[in-house]
Design a protein around this nucleic acid. Structure first.
Lengths: 238, 238
DNA sequence: AGTCGAACGTGACCCGTGTCATGGCATCAG
DNA sequence: CTGATGCCATGACACGGGTCACGTTCGACT
C-alpha cells in the first residue's frame, strides 16, 4: 500500500512502502507532533498545479498519495520534465530552505493527497528540531542525486536512443515486476511526456520504440511494456 | 581577497568576499570551535584529484583557495564538467550526508588550499550543531540549484550556440568586470573544457566563437574575452 | 452504432554538429 | 635554430534527429 493516511503517516511508517528517504519516517514523537500541528491536508484533482516556476515560495508540499510532474519551461515554450515525484517526497523544499523562487512547475498527474506546510512554520520547525533538519539535508541530497542522473543522461548520451534506454532501465529498477517474459512495467506517460523527459521530440520517441520492438528488446501491448532483453538496453547505454 | 587562511576563516568572514552561502560564515563560536578541532588543512598542487567518481566517501572538502573542476565520465570516456567550484564550497557534501558514493571527480585547476573533515567527524558535528545542519541544507540547495541550471541548459537548448551563450552570460554575472567596451572576463578554461561544460565538441566551440566574433557580439584577445553585445547573447537564449 | 479528440506511426526533407583531417601558432627544452 | 607539444582554426562529409505532413488507432461520450 501507499501511504494510507496523512494523519497516521508518522506512526506507521514501518508498514508502509515508502522509501527510506521519506521525510515522515523516524522522527521523534515530539517532532512528529510538531509537524502534525502545522500541516494542512489537501486533496488535488488530476491536472492541478501545486506551484509554478518562478513563483515565490509559500511553503513545502509533502506528497502523500499520487504522482506529481515537475517540469521547467523555456521562454519559447519548450518543456522539459525534471522528474515524476512519488509519494513521500517533499516538493518545493530547496526553494524554501534557500529562500529562492520555485524552480519548477508541479502538476498532479492524478488525484493527489498533499500536506502543505507554510514557509515560516516549516523554517521554525527546522530551527527547533535538529533531527528534522538533517533529514531535510538528506532529502536535498536525494534531489541532487536525481538531478545528477538527469545531467548524465542529457549530457553524456550520444543519441536519443541511449537516453531512452537509460530511462527504461531506470524505470525497471523503480517499478518493474519480474515475469518469465522479462520485466514488466506500466508506463503511465504518453510518448509526448517521455519525449519531454529525455529532451527530444514525440516522433523520435515513437520511432525509437519501433526500433526497440524490431530488435526484440522490448514488447509493447497497450500501456504495459515488457523489457525482454535488458542486456540489449544496457549495451546501448555502454 | 580570497579566504586568507583556513585557520582564521570563521573569525573574519565579514571581511572576506566569499558568497553568503559559504559554510564557514555565521556559525556560533561553539560550532566554529568544534569545526576547528576536526578539520585538517592541506595544500594541493594543480591537477591533484581530491576524490574520484564512484569512490566511497571519506569525508567532505572545504575549498578555501583555488578552483576545483567537478566532472563525470561515461563508460566510453566521454566527459562532462558539472561545474567549477570556487572558494567557500563544500565538496563531497551530498555523498557524505546521504551515505552514497561520490558522484563526480574533483580535480584542482590550480594550487588549492583545502580543509578536509572525516565523514564520521562531520556527521557527529552536524548531530550536535543544528545551525550547521541548516547551513548544510542551504548549501545542498545551492548545489541543487546549479544542477538545475545545467539541466535547463542541456535540455532546453535548441543548439550548441544557445548553450554557449548561456554559459557566457552566466560567467558575466560571476566574474565579469564592466568596461567601456563591454563586460570583460578572463576565461580560465580551454575550448576543450568549455566544450565539456556544454556537452559538445571542441571544434564546435571554436566555430561558435568565430561566429560570435563575426556577429560583433564578443571580442577575444588571448584569454580575455569582452562581451560587446550582451543583448545579442540574450537574444540567442530567447 | 457513429463522432470526436487525443495519442500514436511513419515518410520526406534538411539543418546542425560530430568526426576526421590538415595546418597555423604559440610556448618550451635541448 | 629545431623539434616537440598543446591549443586553436577551418574545411569536407555523413548522419542523427527536428520539423512538417498526413494517416491510423484508440478510448470516451452521446
Amino acid at each position: 500500500m501507499r501511504l494510507p493516511n496523512g494523519l497516521q503517516a508518522t506512526e506507521n511508517c514501518q508498514t508502509c512502502d515508502l522509501h527510506s528517504e521519506d521525510f515522515f519516517c523516524r522522527l521523534s514523537p515530539e517532532a512528529s507532533q510538531a509537524l502534525e500541528s502545522i500541516k494542512l491536508t489537501n486533496i488535488y484533482p488530476k491536472g492541478a498545479v501545486l506551484f509554478f516556476e518562478e513563483q515565490s515560495p509559500r511553503g513545502v508540499f509533502m506528497l502523500c498519495r499520487g504522482r506529481v510532474k515537475l517540469s521547467v519551461c523555456s521562454a519559447d515554450g519548450k518543456m522539459l520534465i525534471l522528474r515524476i515525484a512519488e509519494p513521500g517526497e517533499l516538493l518545493g523544499l530547496s526553494a524554501v530552505v534557500s529562500d529562492r523562487l520555485y524552480k519548477a512547475t508541479a502538476e498532479t498527474l492524478e488525484t493527489c493527497q498533499v500536506n502543505f506546510i507554510r514557509k515560516e512554520d516549516f523554517l521554525s520547525f527546522l530551527r527547533e528540531h535538529g533531527e528534522a533538519c538533517f533529514r531535510v539535508a538528506q532529502h536535498l541530497s536525494q534531489n541532487y542525486h536525481t538531478a545528477y542522473v538527469q545531467i548524465r543522461s542529457l549530457g553524456l548520451s550520444h543519441s536519443a536512443l541511449e537516453k531512452l534506454a537509460r530511462l527504461l532501465l531506470d524505470w525497471c529498477r523503480g517499478n518493474g515486476t519480474q515475469t518469465e517474459q522479462g520485466i514488466r512495467l506500466k508506463l503511465g506517460l504518453t510518448h509526448e511526456e517521455i519525449a519531454k523527459m529525455i529532451g527530444t521530440s514525440r516522433e523520435t520517441v515513437s520511432r525509437l520504440f519501433s526500433e526497440l520492438k524490431g530488435r526484440e528488446a522490448i514488447h509493447l501491448k497497450g500501456s504495459t511494456l515488457i523489457i525482454r532483453d535488458t542486456a540489449a538496453l544496457e549495451a546501448i547505454t555502454n
